[in-house]
Simulated scan of single mutants.
Amino acid sequence: MHIKEIPEDFIVYEVADIHPEGQGNYALYRLKKRDLTTWDVLGEIARKLRRRQDEIGYGGLKDRHAVSYQFVTIPQGPKKDLHGEGWTLEYLGKVSSPMSKARLQGNLFEITVREVEASEEELSQEVEAVKRFGLPNYFDEQRFGSVRHGQGFAAREAVLGNYERALYLLLVEGSQYEYRRTEKFRECLRRNWPKVESCLELAPSPWERRLLEFLVAHKPSKRTFKRAFALIDAEYLLMLAHAYQAYLWNEILRRYLNRRNLDHFTVPYLLGEFAFYEKLSPEALEELSSLRLPLPSPRLKLTPDVRILYEEVLTREGIPALSKLRTLVKGLVFKTYPREAVIFPEGLTFSLQEDERHPGKKKAVFRYFLPKGSYATLVLKRIFRRGYF
């Protein structure tokens, strides 16, 4: 049983509060991409138009191994369609303000699971449970691409003052871009660190080249490595901070659910386990449906019982208190917002069909809408009670 055998098995339609207005300083487009990351496509569009990539407005990053549709805006962009290998940009009209995360409402998914062994009755039972009780709103593995190597979070190392280790992780073991594109660069750094001069020509972006030039020009020291953070792309720094917060939040929610003594089962994921409940009492359903847990941040105001959970998780990470979840690196900050503990997929349906790619087998096609920030794969992990596909 598996997903994403072909990109068409995972289709994503972005839903956003934006539409052509007939006038405005921004051109609105619908971007369709296949088997590409959002960042790589936006970079190619910027190069085609000879514009800075940060001028292109967008709402969120979509899965690479998928067919996805999303909105982008370009100030004074061309009134025509654009095309590239694996992507098309369809011109929709003019708008007065750019596309952004604030305008993103969520995503509609159509996902095919192949070689399904469960019966229609078994799937119906699990789907009905999800409709009735929802599921925990964990961050799924896509959020943790920067730690797929299993060597830890760059943001955590920065909090602990290990600046060289943090730089190594974000440059060598992580990447702002698609991994295959930066493989030679990262392998060169891995072989030569911290003597990085021979890797300059392989740098995949201007900021990475400037950072390496700085390291070449200065003697290795804690001060040098800390100062080098000022050259890192600001959006990448925020992404690294948020990835670490997301992991901590997952652990906090898991502990919160475990302390409610709910009937539950666990499934593995890249960084540990997800705990899913089987069902909820009316009281528990009411409590969890309204529960919002903020992402960990040093100035949070929490009730004593909830603060205990946060500090237990941080202590295990070597961070003695919530107030210590901070760095001395400009831009590497832990912003917070309340996140729903439980989500209810809207319009959740499925159909069991013959699998045309695997004769004699079945495929299940699921359709549902999720609010922004929630993960479609998590719904499948709950329904099928397994961590990997």
Rank of each mutant, 00 (worst) to 15 (best):
I3D: 09
K4C: 06
I11E: 09
V12F: 01
E14T: 10
N25M: 07
Y26S: 01
K33H: 11
K33Y: 10
W39F: 14
D40R: 05
L42D: 09
A46I: 09
R47G: 12
R47A: 15
L49V: 00
R50Y: 01
D54E: 10
D54T: 00
I56A: 09
Y58E: 05
G59H: 01
R64E: 02
S68K: 00
G86Y: 00
W87H: 10
L89W: 13
L92V: 10
K94R: 15
L104S: 10
L108Q: 15
E110P: 00
R114T: 07
V116W: 00
V116Y: 01
S119Y: 11
S119G: 15
E126P: 01
V127L: 14
E128K: 13
V130D: 02
G134Y: 01
D140F: 03
D140S: 06
R143M: 08
G152S: 12
F153L: 08
A155Q: 05
L160Q: 10
L170T: 11
V172Q: 01
R186K: 07
W193I: 04
C199N: 12
P204C: 14
V216P: 08
N250L: 01
E251F: 07
I252V: 12
R259C: 04
D263I: 10
D263H: 12
Y269Q: 14
Y269I: 08
L270R: 04
E273L: 07
L280R: 08
P282N: 02
S290D: 05
D305I: 04
V306Q: 06
R307I: 05
R307T: 03
I308V: 14
E312M: 06
R316W: 05
V333I: 10
V333P: 03
F344R: 06
E346G: 02
L352T: 08
D355V: 06
K362W: 04
V365D: 05
Y375C: 04
A376S: 14
R382D: 08
I383N: 00
F384H: 01
R386S: 14
G387W: 02
